[in-house]
């Protein structure tokens, strides 16, 4: 049975979905890296609205803080550091043939994903229809994420700290100038 959604729910959902797709299209077609980055930030904000609409409030906040706030600022910072803001310097779109091939691959992938999405879910993976809603009722929006994160996935959670440490060390080593290595 298809659950019923009111217009107050579906309208923002479709609105921000369309904004996300339009910003993503603007993002891949802009010549200037700064403009492209700002369109990508717009996509990420719309996606965070969608996350909130899909009952993932914690992920929505993380999306704004981590993606739009931290990762995109790092990107913009690198664009500024390398002084790449001038679009004329990098007219970087490929020629006609690679673009056509890319469009063909894109259409093929969309068709493939749509076909896969239409497939039936095997019965042993089926859950009761209000399974997630009940979890949400019982533990709250953050508790539903935190409980599995610190129980079943505790080892993975601890290992991500090692990953981040390695990434920081790698970034420092790669970013260091060669002539300062001796000193």
């Amino acid at each position: 049975m298809q659950p019923y959604y009111s217009l107050y729910y579906t309208f923002p959902f479709y609105l921000f979905g369309v904004i996300a797709i339009a910003s993503a299209l603007a993002f891949v077609t802009r010549k200037s890296p700064v403009t492209a980055a700002l369109w990508l930030v717009n996509t990420m904000f719309s996606l965070s609205v969608l996350f909130v609409l899909l009952d993932a409030q914690f992920i929505g906040v993380m999306q704004v803080l981590v993606y739009a706030g931290a990762i995109m600022v790092v990107f913009l910072f690198v664009i500024m550091l390398l002084n790449l803001g001038h679009p004329s310097e990098i007219a970087d779109q490929r020629g006609r043939w690679p673009t056509l091939v890319a469009a063909a691959i894109g259409i093929l992938m969309i068709a493939e994903i749509m076909v896969i999405a239409r497939g039936k879910v095997a019965s042993r993976f089926q859950v009761p229809p209000d399974f997630a809603a009940e979890q949400m009722q019982q533990y709250g929006a953050i508790g539903t994420v935190a409980r599995p994160l610190f129980n079943e996935y505790l080892l993975a959670f601890e290992l991500t700290s090692v990953l981040l440490l390695v990434a920081i060390a790698g970034a420092v080593v790669l970013g260091r100038r060669k002539d300062t290595r001796a000193g």
């Binding site: 797709i21 691959i105 894109g106 994903i113």
Partner: peptide, 12 residues
């Protein structure tokens, strides 16, 4: 797919 196409058509 927009991301994939972007990887394929951009050089920056």
């Amino acid at each position: 797919v927009i991301g994939v196409v972007g990887v394929l058509i951009r050089r920056n």
